[in-house]
Simulated scan of single mutants.
Amino acid sequence: MRTVIITGAGAGIGRQTAKLFAAKGDRVVVADIDIRGADETVAEITAAGGTAVSFPLDVSAEDEWTTFGKWVLSEFGAPHVLINNAGVMDLGGFVEMTAAQWQREIDIDLMSVIYGSRVFAQQMIDAGIRGQIVNLSSVAAYFPSKLEPAYGTAKAAVLMASQSLRVELRGKGIGVTAICPGAIRTNLIANGARSGLTEEQQAEWRERAGGMQRFAYTTPQKVARVIERATRWNSAIVPVAPEAWLMYGLFRLSPSLTREVLARASFDRLESLIPAAEKVLARLTGK
């Protein structure tokens, strides 16, 4: 039985990915700072006849990765698959966001990938396992935007780190993939923060802007299937969702045109679309 580690598996993409791998007969280690969510994922997997265990993990803390790595090795041996999925997305302009907000994005979205990959790549190497590391980047990695510069910067670094690690581990028989989702039906925005707002405004923003993700074409289940397929095909970079593929092609074709198009995006324009989108959703759902 293979051991598959998935961070941020207490909800969303991580949960669906954990359920998919478990359904295929793998032992899944569900790691999340939200241990209640992780336990719920494990309960769903075991109820369906799968094998899973949970582990409380703050992915931004290197010492917790060290402890986690020792626990996995002692309980199951070196893993066969590591999926660095955990992440947050805080919104705000480059100058508007504080240094602390920038650091939070870097610590959770980038450093977690580095910490996890270092710990478990070494375990795979030592055990001679021809494994796979999958890192969740984002369309934001090649989507220069004034709405989410910190998130985009972190995810761009994840994309490059994945490619660098892929080159380094090729001779060890260990594959590395960067998954770049576009808009997905998750609570990523709702669980994030937007700088420059009062606490009351923040709550309203999360409720309304977070609700916009209900309009996303792509589901977490779709991303999970792409991740599972990537572990078999050892794909290098995989955009997920039509807009992710579109932006990937546009950026490769003309970075300057991409910047010109995205320069027109703004919070005011985004917020102006929310009421209309809510009306459309109400008509479609009959609510």
Rank of each mutant, 00 (worst) to 15 (best):
P181F: 00
S164G: 13
R194V: 02
K172E: 11
Y217K: 15
V238D: 10
L110A: 04
R130S: 14
G211Y: 12
W65N: 00
T231M: 11
T46R: 15
R118G: 04
F21T: 07
V223E: 11
A127P: 10
I6P: 01
I33N: 05
G210N: 13
E204S: 09
A11S: 13
S254T: 08
G211A: 12
E62S: 03
T7M: 04
R259K: 14
N135L: 08
A193E: 12
Q101M: 15
L250F: 01
E44N: 12
L165H: 06
P220D: 10
V240I: 12
A18Y: 03
W233S: 15
L20N: 07
D58Q: 13
E40W: 02
R15D: 00
T186H: 06
D63E: 12
S254D: 15
Y248W: 15
I108R: 05
N187D: 14
R208A: 15
M160T: 12
I189D: 01
A43L: 11
T231A: 09
E105F: 09
R214D: 14
A203L: 10
R206G: 07
Q103F: 09
V28E: 02
A140C: 11
K279W: 11
S235W: 15
R2A: 13
K222F: 10
R130G: 08
T258I: 05
P239Q: 14
A18N: 02
A150W: 10
S164D: 05
I5F: 01
M111N: 10
A9Q: 01
Q103V: 06
A11F: 00
Y217E: 15
A193N: 05
T66W: 05
A100P: 02
S235K: 13
E199Q: 12
G50Y: 08
I184R: 04
D109C: 12
R166E: 04
Y248K: 13
V134N: 09
I184W: 07
Q213N: 12
Q122I: 00
L253E: 08
G196Q: 07
R104W: 04
R170C: 01
D268N: 06
I237M: 09
A11M: 00
I13Q: 03
F55W: 13
E96I: 03
A9F: 01
S266Y: 10
E148P: 00
T231F: 13
V72Y: 07
G69E: 08
L57C: 07
P56Q: 11
A183P: 11
W71H: 09
I227A: 10
E278N: 06
T3P: 02
T177L: 03
L73K: 13
R166V: 02
D26R: 01
A52T: 06
M97H: 02
C180G: 00
G10K: 00
A9P: 00
L250A: 14
V42A: 08
W245I: 06
G210M: 10
A47R: 14
T218H: 06
M124N: 10
V28C: 00
L159C: 02
Y248L: 06
L91W: 14
A236D: 15
R208L: 14
R166H: 03
T198F: 12
D58F: 05
A31M: 04
F251H: 15
A121L: 05
V72G: 05
L284V: 09
D63I: 01
